[in-house]
Computed example of a mutant assay.
Amino acid sequence: MRLGRIGAPGAETPVVIDQDGATFALAALTADIDGAFLASGGIDRVREALAERALPLIDPAGQRTGAPLARPGKVVCVGLNYRDHAEETGAPVPERPVVFMKDPSTVVGPYDEVLIPRGSVKTDWEVELAVVIGREARYLESPAEAPGHIAGYAISNDVSEREFQLEYSAQWDLGKSCETFNPLGPWLVTPDEVRSPQALGLRLTVNGETRQRGHTKNMIFGVAYLVWYLSQYMVLRPGDVINTGTPAGVALGLPGTPYLRAGDIVELSIDGLGSQRQTLSNA
């Protein structure tokens, strides 16, 4: 099952897309797809309504696709989680997950414009598997418990300004939390439609040229481990997002490869989770 939101920014309508690709409105079940919806068993209610054919069919043609999750509580990011990415940036392979936070207001739709910050010379791309939490995770006993706390998966573009991130501060926040720096979606795909989060190919192109081609099997720390690990240090609540890291191929790790400029087009996809496309503009 694929959950999504369509409509103008701030006025999105929640929808579900069934296995045949038909789109149904969820307004009768929920005002939005958010933490409260997930925490209250919303996904199960949608599944039941689909089975009973109780939802109205709609045509989404011509409508904007918003992020599939409204108002994430927090966006937790994992850096250097692919060995090849750590190596290309000259960083040591981490012995423990590298964790940082990203402003939740950076989350925008998968086809929305991405703004290059004023003064930026090193705006970069990062295709990532995003995990959306569906049930509170607090001091989980083991990674085996983690799947029961996951609502679904989505594509995330962890856009980053490398000069802000690495040269302006000892922390990464400045380069990670600029406006529009986290396109998400197009869908929140429930776990029953994902064979394994460690069996997904990731791809990203800039102006049609391949920059990233990786696979989640090459994560240093897998999804279940990350959810368990993070639950030891913070409470993960329904509607929280975890960006699980990016494979090699970012501009930071490719000497001579230009960073993003206004007019560039970034396209990214993950197996079974759809695709994104963003045009870059100056803020």
Rank of each mutant, 00 (worst) to 15 (best):
V132K: 12
V132M: 15
G134I: 06
R138A: 11
R138C: 10
E141L: 15
S142D: 13
P143C: 07
A144G: 01
E145F: 08
P147A: 03
G148P: 11
I150V: 14
A151M: 05
A151S: 02
G152L: 09
Y153E: 02
Y153I: 00
S156G: 04
N157F: 00
N157Q: 14
D158V: 01
V159L: 03
V159T: 03
E161T: 03
E161C: 07
E161L: 03
R162C: 07
R162Q: 10
R162D: 07
R162L: 05
E163H: 04
E163Y: 02
F164Y: 13
Q165K: 02
L166N: 10
Y168R: 13
Y168W: 10
Y168L: 10
W172M: 04
D173G: 00
L174R: 15
L174M: 09
G175M: 00
S177A: 11
S177L: 11
T180P: 13
T180S: 15
T180V: 06
T180M: 11
P183E: 14
G185H: 11
G185R: 10
L188H: 10
V189E: 05
V189G: 02
T190L: 01
P191M: 12
P191W: 12
D192Y: 11
D192R: 11
E193A: 14
E193W: 13
S196Y: 04
Q198L: 12
Q198P: 01
A199Y: 07
A199I: 03
A199G: 06
L200A: 09
L200I: 12
V206K: 04
G208A: 04
T210D: 10
R211F: 10
R211V: 01
Q212Y: 04
R213T: 12
R213M: 09
H215S: 08
H215Q: 12
K217M: 12
N218M: 02
N218G: 04
M219T: 01
I220H: 05
G222T: 07
G222Q: 09
V223Q: 05
V223T: 15
A224E: 11
A224C: 04
Y225F: 15
L226F: 03
M234Q: 13
V235Y: 01
V235H: 09
L236P: 01
